[in-house]
């Protein structure tokens, strides 16, 4: 089908890795992970970032994406790691990359990667789920019966068919607040396999309390990172890299 790529092409190794925290907001929360990947790669080109590329017939820029939030879910805490062939100033990268991305895909923080096992550090997520039209009392009741259960099985359609799993154990904490015209659920969920997502938590709530919900919920990931000593707060996964840089 095709002739081999020029074997003389020079492969330059990465000299530095950078970790990027970005948000997915407002109407761009409907961006799928694949959509974001394309938009991000093009933004790197427009920003003139000296990306490292993989070897092989079809070279790809060195980018790792971690735990992308589902399509339709907003996020303040998405993480990406890139490899570059020239040293890049994290502050400049933050400013330029944010400038070339459309509003709604916003760069929040950039650190130089100084520590290993970044993905393992993303232990849990803090989700904020707005449920328009759901009274706080109804929601509180549902959360109470959910949290007092030891297991709530839910079903989800996956590539290999319908899968049944427990949505309760992964939920470390669940709070109910009242919003303008909605009940707001704040949940901290431990990452695992299979990942328990906000819609799984909602499915579980409906199962134990049977509350109807006409209007689609608005979900935002507020934080993603290590579980702190209190056992339920989600910390900043960049702390270790920042400390290593200052040291």
């Amino acid at each position: 089908m095709a002739r081999d790529r020029d074997p003389g092409r020079e492969i330059i190794p990465a000299v530095q890795k950078l970790r990027i925290q970005h948000a997915k907001r407002d109407r761009l929360r409907f961006t799928s992970h694949r959509d974001f990947q394309r938009a991000f790669e093009r933004a790197l080109k427009r920003a003139g970032v000296p990306m490292a590329y993989s070897a092989g017939f079809s070279p790809h820029p060195k980018i790792s994406y971690a735990n992308a939030a589902p399509t339709g879910v907003a996020s303040e805490a998405e993480y990406v790691e890139i490899g570059v062939v020239q040293f890049v100033d994290p502050e400049k990268l933050l400013a330029v990359l944010d400038e070339v991305l459309p509003p709604g895909l916003d760069i929040l923080a950039v650190v130089e990667a100084r520590t290993p096992d970044f993905v393992a550090r993303l232990e849990a997520s803090h989700w904020r789920i707005e449920l328009p039209g759901t009274p706080v009392a109804t929601l509180e009741q549902a959360v109470e019966s959910f949290m007092s259960s030891s297991e709530v099985l839910v079903e989800r359609m996956t590539k290999s068919g319908i899968r049944t799993f427990d949505a309760r154990t992964a939920v470390i904490r669940a709070n109910v607040e009242s919003g303008a015209d909605c009940g707001i659920l704040q949940v901290v969920v431990r990452h695992g396999v299979p990942a328990v997502r906000p819609d799984d938590v909602l499915a579980a709530l409906k199962k134990v309390a049977d509350f109807a919900q006409e209007i689609p919920p608005r979900v935002t990931r507020l934080a993603q990172g290590p579980l702190l000593e209190d056992g339920w707060s989600v910390g900043d996964p960049f702390t270790l890299d920042r400390e290593a840089t200052q040291a």
Binding site: R27, L28, F30, T31, A39, R42, P102, P103, G104
Partner: peptide, 24 residues
């Protein structure tokens, strides 16, 4: 019309095609 449209988007295929936000 986005506030009204937004309610419908979680219920359709590939909602990103209706939100705009293109570069340029």
């Amino acid at each position: 019309v986005f506030p009204a449209l937004e309610q419908l988007l979680p219920r359709v295929q590939k909602p990103v095609q209706y939100v705009g936000g293109e570069l340029n």
